[in-house]
Amino acid sequence: MYAFDYAKPASLDEAARLLADDPEAKALAGGQTYIPTLKQRLAQPTRLVDLAGIPDLATIKEEGDGLAVGAMTTHKAVAASPVVQRAFPELAYLASLIGDPAVRAMGTIGGSVANNDPAADYPVVVLTLDATVRTTKGEHRGSDFFPGMFETALEPDELIREFHIPVPEAAAWEKFRNPASRYALVSVLLVRTKDGEIRCGVGGAGPTCFRATAIEDALRSSFAPEALDGVTIDAGDLNEDIHATAAYRAHLIPVLAKRCVRRMLRR
């Protein structure tokens, strides 16, 4: 790691000010992605602004038609939350599959969304459910929060306060994991919203998460696994690396979507 200074502010406003004062400073949430990044010398911040000293950022509560989840809520807390398990059990399940127990104890939803790793899981939730991202500067809609790989709509000195996640009528999450890193090669979140709309979010496959509209269209006419038999996804825009070709990722998307449909029909 390169050397850096460290600050642990007691409020979100103070943290945002520290980031505004120094464009090379970076916010630190759980550190489960950023500390490995620093170790590989892929980043050289002047200062880390640790958000762990700010109170009331790790809360989960029901709010209107959804859940309000604080930015510093750990994956472990989401997975174990009775509120989430009751209102949106598939979200608790999704959180329980991130990384491993020790990583889940530190990693946070805000860190995951702000980093927008193409293989991260929470961005798919925020996009697919069009969650509201409440920040130190206002609000963003999840549907236009992720312009590209490792990019978000956040300004450099803008910090996430909490998410409002609308709870769908029904949902299924399928994640095809790399067995070593446990990151998604491909993940699919299929939901039926409270308005009856079918939405299919995809993670891991492209530069950033996206909606598979071909799958949504097919399932709108018939909500059955067979409806996806003829559906193909263009591999042209998808990721290719040592773990999987773009064609393999394209193939996995309808496969995982079918599994989601089966699970939603079984319930």
């Binding site: 460290y6 550190g31 489960q32 640790d50 762990a52 472990k76 990583v103 104890a105």
Partner: peptide
């Protein structure tokens, strides 16, 4: 709580 001490700063 079980935590990976190679992925946590001493200051944390």
């Amino acid at each position: 709580v079980g935590t990976k001490s190679c992925t946590m700063l001493a200051v944390q």
